[in-house]
Every structure is written in structure tokens, then in C-alpha cells.
Design a protein around this nucleic acid. Structure first.
Lengths: 113, 113
DNA sequence: TTGACACATACCGATATCGGAATATATTGA
DNA sequence: TCAATATATTCCGATATCGGTATGTGTCAA
């Protein structure tokens, strides 16, 4: 057997540094492919292909304007990340809580002296 | 030329579904490799190798206990991911704010009538 | 010391992915 | 219609990654 993971899920889509750069540059707002190409100094096919991947998972949306294609973020699709992270956030806080309790215990033990 | 991305960052580490499963199962707390193997029905080498990747990016930590190795989450290492997401959160809120202002403007325009 | 157990590592084949180069498609303007 | 522009797509080679199988390493118990 072989690989199982594909590019076709949100987590894989953002695993690529160049794709994150593209997403980052779109935070500023809608941009044409050519603009991204010059802004990020990437080749045009490279950008187009990454945009395709991002499109397929819904992280960006495309709008035609003349012969240009304007891409924009679809921040709602970041939800899976939030949901996934939230569970760890919980674990993280729990750990902080325990740390907190531990520190308080230490304090209480020290007070009587 | 060829690929540029490696497994050696948090984003790639969590891109793999099986690795996310492993992280998920560790939310409950420290677990031995064998436990993960049976809990997730994965092969032992498979689990070991994924744990290695997770270790290398610091998402898990290992502790030896006899001949077993207990792995635990290191949720603090999700911080890069969290921070990355936060920037989009910002963009998202800004958008909502603008939407809000826009709606208020509409309301104000409507009132005089 | 030996054998059993728990885990890590090495090696391998299959496949996915990246980037480059070349080309196709669509839109605009002359 | 034709050339130019903007973008998408195809084909390709190099390499990364995944999972399996086999084996190495370290620890315990007798």
C-alpha cells in the first residue's frame, strides 16, 4: 500500500508554505492572480495551481473581471481549524489550571511557617 | 527543481489525518505506544514513525517507564498555528465590523424618511 | 545469560506532490 | 479576424511521504 493523505482537505491545503503565503496576501483583500505573482515572486503556473488547491477546499473563491480572475479569502472555511484547535485549547487551559492549583498549594504550604 | 515543503513544521505535522488521530487520543492524557496502537488500530511502526514526526516538531514529548515509552501532548506547540489563525480571525472580524457599519449607515439613511 | 516484550529504525515499493516549461483557453482591443 | 494579455492546464522529472516488512535496541524476569 502507499500514501493515504491527499491535498483535498483543509489541513493539507495550509500545510504548504507557499499556499499560506497566498492566503496571507489575500487577508488584505481580493487580488488578481497576476498581482499575487508579482507580490510573492512566484511563477504564474505555480500560483494558479496553488489557488486551485485552495479553491477546491473552499478556502478561497474566484470572481471573473474581464480577463482577470480575482481571488478572495473565504474565512468561514477556517472553521474546521478553530474547532480542532478548541479541543486542544481546552487541554492547554486544563494544564494551566492544574499548574495554578499546584502553585496555590505550594503557597498554602508555605504560609503556616 | 522539486518539492520544497518538509514534514518538519507544525503545519505539516498536523496535516496528516493519522497524526491528528494520535494527537486526539493523547488529549485524554499520556499514553504508551502500544496503547495507541491498539486504540487506533494502526501498526506499531506506523505509530512510532508518526510519533517521531510529532516529536520533532515538539507537539508531543516522551518519557520512558521501564520498557514502555509514554507520550504526552505538548499543546503549547500549537501556538504557531493558533497565531496564524488569529490573523484571519482579525480579518474576519474586520469584515464583520465593516458590515456592521454599513448596516448602521443604511439604517441612518433610512431614518429621516 | 536467555527469552520475551515494547518500541525504534532501516529499507523498500507505490504514489503524491512540487515546480518548471510548454501549451491551451478566454477576453480585450485594433 | 488577429495579436496581446491574463490565466488555466498539461506534461514532466525530481523528490517526499506513506505504509509494510524485517530487523535492531533496550529492558525485564527467570
Amino acid at each position: 500500500m502507499a500514501r493515504s493523505s491527499t491535498t483535498s482537505d483543509v489541513f493539507n491545503a495550509i500545510a504548504e508554505a507557499h499556499r499560506r503565503e497566498i492566503l496571507d496576501t489575500l487577508i488584505g483583500g481580493e487580488k488578481a492572480v497576476g498581482t499575487i505573482v508579482t507580490d510573492l515572486s512566484m511563477s504564474q503556473p505555480q500560483v494558479s495551481k496553488h489557488l486551485r488547491v485552495l479553491s477546491e477546499v473552499g478556502l478561497v473563491r474566484c470572481r471573473a473581471e474581464g480577463r482577470r480572475r480575482l481571488y478572495r479569502l473565504e474565512p468561514a472555511r477556517l472553521r474546521p481549524f478553530h474547532e480542532w484547535l478548541a479541543r486542544y485549547e481546552q487541554a492547554w487551559n486544563d494544564r494551566l489550571d492544574r499548574m495554578d492549583e499546584y502553585l496555590k498549594e505550594l503557597q498554602q504550604e508555605g504560609e503556616p511557617q
